Simulated scan of single mutants.
Amino acid sequence: MKTAAIAFAMMTTATVASAADYNANHFFAERHSMVRGPYVEFAKKVAEETDGEINFTVFSAGSLLPPASSLQGVRDGIAQVTYHAGTYTPSELPIDNLIGNMAFYNTDPLVMAFASTEFGLTNPAQLAEWKANGVVYGGGYSTSQYFMQCNTPVRTLADIKGKRLRMAGGAWSRFAEFVGAVPVSMPSSEMYTGLDAGSLDCAVAAADALDSFSLKDVVTDMNTLAIGNYYAGFEWGYNVAFWQSISPENRRVLFNEMAYYLAEHRIAFDKDVEKAVNSAKENGMAVAEPDQALKDALAEFVVADEATLIANAKDRGVKDPEAILTEFKALVDKWDGLLANVDTTDVDALAALARSEIYDKLDETTYGVY
């Protein structure tokens, strides 16, 4: 009788544990705007709205999965939801990288976050790519604009020649080469060391990195040339088995919360940038506008690089990348118009727009059910 009671207690404990044993993975630190709201607060809201049926334990700062392993990790069920930076896996996600490399087409982060989310949730070719990689796409994001944050003045096209720039890969690296700089590939976690040790002249990243990666301690100059913004991959990608195991009602909860935190994150990210830049300026960092020659070089690159994007996509097996780019551009233009008519500082208004234009149009009984 005692043995049976122990066995029953173990079974009960196991059931409770499995209900709470859902892992949420992000490789940024918990203080980052991409984690604070979209993962930490998101997990609490989801638990509340599902009456405890979905409880995510948030692992941040790469404590569960390193950046390059997040796609495989969610596919294999190490995480049930994860952030993934798409440029780490160009061979596995060629369509996503085609879209993600259009970062110079429109440098408004809010527009690109909403447009890339709608594309990722609705484009048939992109949906097939997610499925082939064992992931259910939940929603996107966008960093704020990328700026050159340097340990030496870089103000002009002449200044940038030969400079070693930390780039996010893809189109960013090609831009560096286009203007005669040297692209350096390294994760954001190593930017501080690179600038401090002198192996980098500039880190090209969103300016919240002045605080979130402590770059203000090693950056003396920032150039405000808007070198795109990063939105490749996804903010929420779900393990297929997990997604199929939860009820349609709980999938709808996830849809609603992702719509909210898609909006919340964008506002929080820009606030973090403003705070970080102001703090760095108080500590002596100089902020300079690019000269006209540098602006012109970026504009020339944007036009020239589209042919490279298409050629790379074809080499990776993408069928008709021209049509895919045309559809994506149409979504970007659509969101450029929609967001012009809403208060972009109002989280609730932006979330309502994300729901009505994107998430409410998804069928929670069939979406992601492969």
Score class of each variant (00 low, 15 high):
Leu195Asp: 09
Ala286Leu: 11
Phe175Gly: 04
Phe269Cys: 06
Ser70Asn: 13
Asp296Gln: 13
Cys202Ser: 08
Tyr22Trp: 13
Ser188Asp: 11
Tyr367Met: 09
Glu177Ser: 14
Ala158Phe: 04
Trp172Glu: 15
Val40His: 00
Leu331Trp: 02
Ala197Phe: 02
Arg31Glu: 12
Ala17Tyr: 13
Asp363Asn: 15
Tyr22Val: 12
Ala206Ile: 00
Gly233Thr: 11
Gly77Asn: 10
Ser212Val: 07
Val253Cys: 04
Ser142Lys: 03
Leu65Gln: 10
Glu274Lys: 10
Thr344Asn: 14
Asp201Ile: 02
Thr156Ile: 05
Tyr192Gln: 07
Lys131His: 12
Tyr22Asn: 15
Ala9Leu: 15
Pro183Leu: 08
Ala61Cys: 02
Thr224Ala: 01
Leu254Trp: 01
Lys216Glu: 08
Leu121Trp: 03
Ser247Trp: 07
Asn256Arg: 14
Ala349Cys: 09
Ser63Leu: 05
Tyr83Cys: 04
Glu249His: 09
Lys361Gly: 10
Leu200Pro: 10
Asp76Ser: 05
Ala14Lys: 10
Ser247Met: 07
Phe213Asp: 11
Ala61Lys: 13
Phe175Pro: 03
Tyr231Gly: 05
Phe234Lys: 05
Asp51Trp: 01
Leu121Thr: 04
Val342Pro: 03
Leu331Ser: 10
Val111Lys: 08
Ser18Val: 09
Leu165Val: 11
Ala158Met: 05
Glu118Val: 03
Pro124Val: 05
Asp272Phe: 04
Trp130Tyr: 07
Met285Lys: 04
Thr220Gln: 07
Lys314His: 02
Met11Asp: 13
Asn312Cys: 00
Ser245Lys: 14
Gly284Phe: 01
Leu309Ala: 10
Val369Arg: 15
Val253Gln: 02
Phe8Arg: 14
Thr344Ile: 14
Ile95Phe: 04
Lys314Asn: 01
Glu177Asn: 10
Asp346Phe: 11
Ile54Lys: 14
Lys275Pro: 00
Val303Leu: 03
Glu53Lys: 15
Phe28Ala: 13
Ala263Tyr: 02
Val240Ser: 12
Ile160Arg: 07
Glu264Ile: 00
Thr57Glu: 11
Met186His: 02
Gly337Ile: 02
Met148Asn: 08
Lys329Trp: 04
Ala85Phe: 13
Val35Ile: 07
